[in-house]
Simulated assay, not measured.
Amino acid sequence: MQYIRKSEDRGAANFGWLQSKHSFSFGNYYDPKHMGVSVLRVINDDMVMPGQGFGTHGHRDMEIISYVTEGALKHDDSTGNSYVVPAGDVQRMSAGRGVTHSEFNASSTDKVKFLQIWIQPNVKGIEPSYEQKSLPQQGALTTLVAPNGENGALLINQDASISRLVLGKDESIHLAIEKRLGYLHIIKGQVTIDGQTFKEGDAIGIEPEQTLAIKAELALEALWFDLPAS
Rank of each mutant, 00 (worst) to 15 (best):
G201D: 08
T142S: 06
E8T: 04
N81S: 13
G55C: 03
K33C: 08
E207P: 10
M62A: 06
S7I: 00
I177P: 00
M1Q: 13
A203E: 03
H57K: 07
E217R: 09
G96T: 09
I4F: 06
N157V: 10
T109K: 10
Q210F: 09
Q2E: 14
F15A: 07
E150Y: 15
I156Q: 06
T109P: 01
E200I: 05
A72K: 06
S82Y: 11
Y3L: 13
L73S: 08
I126P: 01
H174G: 06
G27L: 03
I187V: 13
L223C: 01
E63S: 03
A229Q: 03
G27F: 09
E207F: 15
D31W: 15
G98K: 09
A95M: 00
A87H: 07
L227G: 02
P136V: 04
I126G: 07
W118A: 05
M35D: 10
K33S: 14
K111S: 13
L115A: 10
V112E: 02
Q19V: 10
S107D: 06
S23W: 08
A219Y: 08
Q210R: 11
Q116F: 13
R92Q: 03
S25N: 08
H59M: 05
A95C: 01
D110W: 09
Q190G: 14
E207K: 15
T79M: 15
A222T: 07
E63C: 02
I4V: 15
D46T: 14
R60P: 03
L165P: 00
D159Q: 14
I162N: 00
A153V: 11
D89I: 02
N44R: 10
L218C: 07
F24C: 00
I173L: 04
E150C: 06
Y30Q: 07
W118K: 06
L218S: 11
V99Y: 04
K188M: 12
M93A: 01
S38G: 12
K199E: 13
G168A: 04
P228H: 08
E209I: 00
R41D: 08
V191A: 13
F198E: 02
A160K: 02
N151D: 15
Q19S: 12
L220R: 06
R97P: 02
Q52D: 04
V112A: 03
R180A: 04
H101V: 01
Y30F: 14
A13W: 09
A13M: 05
